[in-house]
Design a protein around this nucleic acid. Structure first.
Length: 613
RNA sequence: GCGCCCGUAGCUCAAUUGGACAGAGCAUCGGUCUUCGGAACCGAGGGUUGCAGGUUCGAGUCCUGCCGGGCGCGCCA
């Protein structure tokens, strides 16, 4: 029997539809859903209305025909037809315990799943999936701009793996090109000792290098126009000349780097190492699944860019335009430029090389980019270019799926993208440490008896969990407002609320007497027990839908609903004080199942669970 | 100018991919219970889903046109 009643019922309905109307209807979606309102039963099928149109028949008659051919006796009471043709289903009393046992069985061994050794949950097809996430830039601190890509990408990796996919995270580092060469040139000119350089100073150097190389021609021209005086004009002339010279120097440095000159390469490796070391600290703080082995930066593709452009030209997909090589995109005014008129490559070129590598060499059937909204047009064009040249073709036939998971901005209270008061990017590390600090203060206040080391663990779990949950629980495409008091709240749809619900359930488990039978029969009698049971059974379907839609907020909403169902059950149904041992043991088993699913789900969100808090 | 995204309760967000009466939390007001962790549970008020049309058995969801906000628009990434 399937673990997911929706799955099970859907199969039965497809059979019924085929039996009633013929094999050509085998592909119709039976539209089996959990009922939204208990008065309509536990599940429903909405297939009859759509089918009626296709058949040119009365929808209620169609519904009746489906019901007549459906074999549901083992799981459901007699179906009822309502409204325009809804088919309402009520589970048989003995079906729930069976389904719960199956669900419990599939959870065994899931505690230690990793993305490396994914455990198959469903019988669905397993794919190899590449997830592009984080996107670190060398010589720069990680800042709020990296937050969403990191935690959304991390969650998607975990969820995809948990439903049986083989997941390969890819951190597409910004580690190559003129910007990096500018930094190297600047550091060398200033004779900076790279062995004593930390990321703070490196980032300063990055800023300085950018400014040093920027010639302010408009300022010079306006100084001349208004006749600002020989002294001012000379100053601006010097600025422009100096900047141009430094830019030339950076370009020469880039060439030397590309040619593999050892001193330059050593400097490049050094600044990469300095940057990444700081990043790994943040990964650690965030409990991300990505590690150094998932680094595949722009530098990795450098030898592949030329061939990419060559093949685009040779195949006729790309053409020359104003000296540049471009791919025309239907319905788009501006083409995708893959080589500049000066012969240089662009990030589009690197993206094309990366997608090709991921599909043809890593064997991805699905490539997912977790990158913000603003790059929509870019990815649409890049994906279209890949399809035109056919690099998404899979060996076994068919095409790889290319998806851009676009997310909105993190905003401050003013509704504008979050910045410091002075208008700079907020460093991710500072943000996360503040979250832990604030969580610590709240925990100390709410539970002063907690011993100090445990308090620290709790502060970290709650602080980081709150930031993650706030980010993941709302629809990805929308901007969201970053507000400490809301996301650190212990009531409502927050990480801390769910963590606390978990703690409450754990405390039942700890207090359970020794004679409790772990395999006691599930007894589902009270309405609160039934709605909890139904909520538990929705878990596999929820994960499947997140894996398909790539929308983590569905998992958050699910866990919140589950926690709510448990709370109601817990207030209405005595567990340890149940009237009989059989009932007590059944309720303990139900609690333990809830606890495990809550932990599993929070784990997939990358949120830690606690024994106490 | 062109293109993309968003607009839902006072505030912050959902709505099972077109399904039944648009749901939660916060805030406000009221209630439960001699707390298996009360960091709980139950209830009330609060909505012309930005506006106007259209498609259909059925629209917050799809189509068209407006209004408002955000973002992006050849040789940066």
């Amino acid at each position: 029997m399937s673990v997911d009643p929706v799955d099970l019922l859907a199969k039965r309905f497809v059979e019924a539809i085929v039996a009633a109307f013929g094999a050509e209807f085998a592909d119709v979606d039976p539209l089996v859903r959990a009922a939204q309102n208990p008065q309509f039963g536990d599940f429903q099928s909405n297939a009859a209305m759509g089918l009626a149109k296709r058949l040119g028949r009365n929808p209620r008659e169609v519904a009746a025909a489906i019901v007549q051919h459906a074999r549901l006796e083992d799981v459901c009471e007699t179906p009822e037809i309502a409204g325009p043709g809804f088919i309402n289903l009520r589970l048989r009393g003995d079906a729930l315990p069976r389904l719960l046992e199956d669900l419990e069985g599939t959870l065994k061994g899931r505690e230690h799943h990793t993305i490396r050794r994914a455990l198959s949950w469903t019988s669905g097809t397993s794919q190899r999936v590449v997830v592009d996430l984080v996107g670190v830039n060398i010589a720069k601190q990680m800042h709020v701009g990296h937050l969403r890509s990191s935690i959304i990408g991390d969650t998607l990796c975990r969820v995809l793996a948990s439903v049986g996919n083989e997941v390969i995270p890819q951190n597409h580092l910004g580690d190559w090109g003129l910007q990096i060469a500018m930094v190297i040139a600047s550091l060398r000119r200033r004779r900076v000792d790279l062995d004593r350089l930390d990321l703070d100073h490196l980032e300063e150097a990055y800023r300085d290098a950018t400014l040093d190389c920027k010639a302010d021609r408009p300022a010079l021209e306006s100084a001349r126009r208004i006749n600002a005086g020989p002294h001012r004009i000379a100053e601006w002339e010097a600025q422009v000349a100096g900047a141009e010279e430094r830019l030339e120097e950076a370009k020469r440095t880039l060439v030397r780097l590309q040619q593999g000159e050892s001193g330059i390469v050593a400097a490049w490796e050094k600044i990469t190492a300095i940057t990444m070391q700081a990043c790994y600290e943040i990964y650690d703080l965030l409990d991300l699944v990505v590690t150094h082995e998932h680094n595949r930066g722009e530098s990795f593709y450098r030898e592949r860019l030329g061939p990419v452009v060559d093949e685009f030209v040779r195949s006729g997909v790309a053409k020359e335009s104003d000296g540049a090589i471009v791919v025309e995109i239907e319905g788009d005014e501006t083409p995708l430029i893959i080589r500049k008129s000066d012969g240089g490559f662009l990030y589009a070129t690197t993206d094309l090389a990366a997608i090709r590598y991921r599909i043809q060499e890593l064997g991805a059937q699905r490539v997912i980019y977790v990158v913000d909204n603003r790059q929509r047009d870019h990815f649409r064009k890049v994906f279209e270019a890949i399809r035109k040249i056919g690099w998404d073709r899979l060996p076994g036939g068919g095409r790889a799926e290319l998806r851009h998971v676009a997310f909105g901005a993190v905003c401050g209270a003013d509704g504008k993208p979050l910045k410091t008061r002075s208008g700079e990017n907020i460093r991710l590390k500072d943000l996360l440490l503040e979250a832990i600090d604030r969580a610590g203060a709240i925990v100390r206040d709410k539970n002063p008896d907690l011993p100090d080391p445990e308090q620290k663990d709790v502060a970290r779990a709650v602080g980081i969990g709150s930031v993650k949950y706030a980010d993941l629980s709302t629809h990805l495409v929308k901007d969201y407002i970053f507000a400490w008091d809301r996301m650190l709240a212990f009531e409502g749809n927050t990480g801390a609320y769910l963590q606390n619900q978990y703690v409450r359930i754990r405390s039942i488990g700890r207090k359970a007497p020794d004679d409790v039978r772990a395999d006691a029969a599930f007894l589902i009698a009270a309405v609160e027990e039934k709605s909890l049971a139904l909520a538990l059974l929705r878990y596999p379907g929820t994960l499947a839908s997140v894996a398909e839609t790539l929308e983590p907020h569905r998992l958050c909403q699910y866990l919140y609903d589950l926690a709510g169902a448990f709370s109601v059950f817990y207030t209405q149904c005595p567990v340890l004080k149940a009237k009989t041992t059989a009932l007590r043991d059944a309720r303990i088993r139900l609690s333990r199942l809830t606890e495990r699913i809550l932990a599993d789900g929070l784990g997939l969100l990358g949120i830690r669970t606690l024994e106490r808090m």
